[in-house]
Amino acid sequence: MGLDSQQLVNAEGVSLTVEQALANLQQTDDPGLRYYAAWWLGRFRVTQPEAIDTLVSALDDETDRAPDGGYPLRRNAARALGKLGERRVVPALMRCLDCSDYYVRESAAQALGQLADPQAIPALRALLAGGVAAAVPTPGKPHLVQPYNAVLEALGSLNATEAVEDIAPFLNHEVAQVQNAAARAMYQLTGETAYCDHLLQRLQAPNLQLRRSAMMDLGAIGYLPAAQPIATTLAENSLKLIALQGILESHLQHIGFPASGLSTEAKQVLSLMDDLL
């Protein structure tokens, strides 16, 4: 289905055209309009060359600065580029991994994972330098020195088997979400289901955030045996449905749906989803 004009509307009901979004991103007087335009181009999958070029330029923006010195526009531009599927932006995103702004590095790592270009692997691995010993909190900030979750997940998505030895120690990092990200990547890189068992156990964690993150990880890697435990964990149905969608679609692609028809497993996941509506 193409772009439906009815859908090109933001939460306040303000609609943009592609031309307006590009013009908003190219001007520099109103940082709010630029920030929104960058998000909008990603959300509505505007892949025309001018959109890509303008977003790449925004990765070097110096005008939109947060009080803490961060680069809000760069963050949004990197996220948008991750959604647009153009691999020619990979070198520009790799340079963002050296940005002083943690959130730019995080968005760039996520985008590189989505773009599935293995040339990003060495630059991503570099952020794991020093291993778990170096992976400590940034003083005065609510995050670690590097966006480890995003880096580990990207390496898993990129099938970076050469990084297994860098990743494995993070299974024992003191932050539970980092352990989850490492388990997710290790499963993708080795196919060992023991790593998924770690995530399945997390579905019973007393902390809701941990259950949510384990659910999303299991959905993202499409681990079919997790469908039932996800359906019964204590969390919002909206998130369970998204995780089950991830599991179902991996399975459907694996069996070759629609040509294949539905398997017994697919019907079971659909029944679980029906009960969560």
Binding site: M1, Q245, L252, F257, P258, G261, A266, K267, L270, M273
Partner: peptide, 19 residues
């Protein structure tokens, strides 16, 4: 729905209903 919906999951649900 099966031939036009852009979500594989929605297509699958429609297929189950149709079956």
């Amino acid at each position: 729905v099966i031939s036009h919906d852009r979500s594989l999951t929605v297509q699958a649900r429609a297929q189950m209903a149709l079956n």
